[in-house]
Simulated assay, not measured.
Amino acid sequence: MAVRVKDISPSGVRKWMYGERIPRPDQMRRLAFATNGEVMPNDFFLSEHGNAA
């Protein structure tokens, strides 16, 4: 993911990507805005099959 989000470190993004951490609600909102909705809060909770990620 190449999008920069204010006050979120690259290591924080890496932890989200690998499921090591879930972003806080305010970070999820900023991430959704920065990616024009391509990454949404549900992306951190549901997989393609409707199961928890």
Rank of each mutant, 00 (worst) to 15 (best):
M1S: 12
A2P: 06
R4L: 06
K6S: 14
K6L: 09
K6M: 03
D7V: 01
I8A: 06
S9F: 00
P10E: 11
P10S: 09
P10F: 01
S11M: 00
R14C: 02
K15A: 14
W16Q: 05
Y18I: 14
G19M: 09
G19Y: 01
R21M: 12
I22N: 12
P23H: 07
P23K: 09
R24F: 12
P25E: 13
D26G: 00
Q27R: 09
Q27S: 14
R29Y: 05
R29Q: 15
R30T: 08
R30Q: 15
L31T: 15
L31D: 02
L31N: 06
L31E: 02
A32W: 02
A32G: 07
F33H: 11
N36C: 05
N36V: 09
G37I: 07
E38S: 03
P41G: 08
N42L: 06
N42Q: 10
N42F: 12
D43V: 02
F44Y: 04
F44R: 09
F45E: 11
F45R: 11
F45P: 09
S47C: 02
S47E: 02
E48H: 03
H49M: 10
G50I: 08
G50W: 01
G50H: 09
N51D: 09
N51R: 13
A52F: 05
A52Q: 07
A53M: 08
